[in-house]
């Protein structure tokens, strides 16, 4: 077993375990913090899989921006800081069943489809900032620009939605 494999198993365990905690913890702020751990572990796996730039973006945007945003949202909606007994709806069993079904379908597919296929990471092109940047601005420049328009639309939408009052008067 190579070092990469050991590291992957460890990081995978951390990611899966913290993800479970994200969806099961009784304290909302803890859920956000466990999400940080999950995202960090996934970023580590990205590093193992030669996606260097994606890993850093994951850390920057997810951990740096999204989780902070989520924490702000929790604060703005006056979420209680202590543990909440009724944080989950009373349909845990069907939800578990559905999630298990999803896992079964997806897991069966990937295991059956790629059983015995080795992932050779030696000598792989590492997705550094330079290579990734070159690829994006050469081959993927059109989707990139479209994405910028989408971001603009999301920005406008978020502003309109959160401005709230005014024309939506009476609420």
């Amino acid at each position: 077993m190579t070092v990469v494999e050991v590291l992957f198993l460890l990081l995978g365990l951390v990611a899966a375990g913290s993800a479970l905690l994200v969806v099961t913890t009784r304290t909302m702020v803890h859920a956000a913090l466990w999400l940080v751990v999950t995202l960090g572990a996934v970023a580590g796996i990205f590093l193992l899989l030669a996606a260097e730039f994606v890993a850093w973006v994951q850390i920057l945007i997810y951990v740096g921006a999204v989780v902070v945003l989520l924490l702000f949202a929790l604060m703005l909606t006056k979420a209680p800081t202590g543990p909440q007994p009724d944080l989950d709806a009373r349909r845990a069993l069907p939800a578990v069943a559905v999630a298990g079904l999803v896992l079964a379908v997806l897991g069966t597919t990937v295991v059956a489809g790629f059983h015995g296929v080795e992932l050779d990471l030696d000598g792989a092109v590492v997705g550094s900032a330079q290579t990734t940047g070159a690829t994006i601005f050469q081959q993927w420049v059109l989707p990139f620009e479209v994405l910028s328009v989408l971001l603009l639309a999301a920005l406008v939408g978020a502003i309109v939605l959160s401005r709230g009052t005014g024309r939506r008067g009476g609420e």
């Binding site: 190579t2 990611a15 899989l49 999630a99 896992l103 080795e118």
Partner: peptide, 21 residues
């Protein structure tokens, strides 16, 4: 490293996400 390891992890994370939603 077998390819299905990261894929299975991905499936697991997705299922956990579904459960959370």
């Amino acid at each position: 490293m077998p390819l299905w390891w990261p894929l299975l992890l991905s499936s697991l994370l997705f299922a956990i996400g579904v459960y959370g939603v």
